[in-house]
Design a protein around this nucleic acid. Structure first.
Length: 428
RNA sequence: GGUAGGAUACUCAAGCGGCCAACGAGGGCAGACUGUAAAUCUGCUGGGGAAACCCUACACAGGUUCGAAUCCUGUUCCUACCA
């Protein structure tokens, strides 16, 4: 099965600039391809994984992937899929973001230099930066009519009668920069294919056009569908915000839990999108899932594979162990080791022994300091609604105090809000 | 530049000078049912307080009034029509 057939089977194919030609080209010999990542934050999030993993799929198939960190394009702001103008990032923020994102790109792709198709990281600021505005207008701008640019979806949606948000000249120019990247990579690295989400179609075709017009060469564009959740919510967002790849922003435990909680209707789709499992393996999981969805085997596999890919095997095992304990029943008979492991995986806060003695610590304060509730007021409502558990026992009295009696192994108190939000108080 | 209209909580959106911490919808959170799923039903959704109640909020700054999200003045920003 070819790489394109694999992508199609996985539902990762939306469009291609010239499918038949690309199919032939890929069959012919290894190709160099790239995908771009704009450093809009100091970490990638799970939504960025599709193109990144796709690069890896190509690499596994013998092709040479280039991950582009958009130091230049990121400073402009991509209008694609945005309803309004974006806030520009400062140079310092951008530099910090690029450094952080680079590391994450590097963890998914194989940078082993002994490979003939070792991955490569580039920053478009290195070639866009030196170009003068005048040169850019003459060498790139000249190849495009405003008419065709205005017709792109990313621009059109900002010009429509109802949407008066408008678009700045800066963001309008974004597509030219991205198009120039493709041309540059074709010249410098013989890159012949750009991949990206379907919202990137317009930007990608600017690149294929520019390369054809300027260099007389045919290069290809390939897009994936945008990931959607069955319930209409945004993929990659949890109640705590985006699900980041950086463990400091989204703990490994939370990352694992995000995938455990995926809607049944999405789980097989996501296995295809995100994992490197074979078709046979996925088919088997799907059969099992349809047979007995309550077993949640598909979810467990998805969460395991994803967490392992991003955070490594060891951290994943810790997250799984913590999940087993927290969702496996009561705390009775739990060992000190197990509890301590759990306490370190989930959000935690400290309390002092002296505070627990005598009067004790107000349950409300504990909920707030552990981050489970936004305010005392809120904590009270959670409490009265029956959503708060201490050591897995429901507490409803807002006056309740935590004392030494609640402490396990002289060190831990386990708090829970709702069904799945845990936090640990660590006594010191 | 002229004229008219608008700015309300996460979003949309209602709001008679007192009964407005502000209708309703969506979203979110929680409870029940479940499988850490979906659907459904119920409650909650500014902060402090055990509570009575207090504080902060309806673009910003002032004013009228016993009392303002609601009336007046100025400012800023948006929108439509005209130029």
């Amino acid at each position: 099965m070819t790489i394109l057939e694999d992508l199609q089977w996985r539902g990762l194919y939306t469009d291609c600039t010239a499918l038949d030609e690309l199919t032939k080209r890929l069959a012919d010999s290894p190709i160099t391809l790239y995908a771009g990542f704009d450093p809009t934050a100091d970490s990638l999030h799970v939504g960025n994984l599709v193109p990144l993993i796709a690069l890896r799929r190509f690499q596994n198939a013998g092709h040479r992937p280039i991950a582009l960190a958009g130091g230049a394009t990121g400073s402009i702001g991509d209008p694609s899929g945005k309803k309004s103008e974006r806030q520009l990032l400062t140079k310092e923020v951008l530099d910090g973001n690029i450094a952080a994102v680079r590391k994450q790109l590097a963890s998914i792709l194989d940078f082993n230099e002994t490979l003939p198709n070792t991955a490569q990281l580039v920053d478009n600021a290195s070639w866009v930066g030196p170009i003068s505005f005048l040169d850019f207008l003459r060498d790139v701008g000249k190849y495009f009519t405003v008419n065709s640019m205005v017709a792109k979806e990313s621009v059109k949606s900002r010009l429509g009668g109802d949407n008066e948000a408008g678009i700045s000249y800066t963001e309008f120019s974004y597509m030219l920069l991205q198009g120039y990247d493709f041309y540059h990579l074709n010249q410098a690295e013989n890159c012949e294919l750009q991949i990206g989400g379907s919202d990137q179609w317009g930007n990608i075709t600017v690149g294929t056009e520019l390369t054809r017009k300027k260099a007389g060469k045919t290069v290809y564009g390939l897009t994936f569908p945008l990931i959607t959740n069955a319930d209409g919510s945004k993929f990659g967002k949890s109640e705590a915000g985006a699900v980041w790849l950086d463990a400091k922003r989204t703990s490994v435990y939370r990352f694992y839990q995000y995938f455990i909680n995926v809607d049944d209707r999405d789980v097989i789709k996501f296995l295809k999108y995100f994992t490197f499992l074979s078709h046979e393996e996925i088919d088997a999981i799907e059969a099992q899932h349809n047979e007995n969805p309550g077993a949640r085997d598909a979810h467990r596999t998805l969460a395991f594979e994803m967490t392992k890919l991003v955070h490594g095997e060891e951290a994943t095992q810790d997250a799984i162990n913590a999940s087993k304990i927290l969702f496996g029943g009561g705390l009775d008979g739990i060992s000190e080791n197990a509890l301590s492991e759990v306490a370190n995986e989930i959000p935690n806060a400290n309390v002092s022994t002296t505070d627990l003695q005598g009067e004790g610590v107000s349950i409300l304060d504990a909920l707030v300091s552990s981050g489970l509730s936004a305010s005392r007021k809120n904590a009270k409502k959670d409490l009265q609604g029956g959503g708060v558990n201490v050591n897995n026992q429901r507490i409803q009295d807002p006056q309740a105090k935590l004392t030494q009696a609640d402490v396990h192994f002289e060190k831990y108190i386990l708090l829970r809000r709702g069904k799945k939000n845990y936090a640990a108080l660590i006594v010191e």
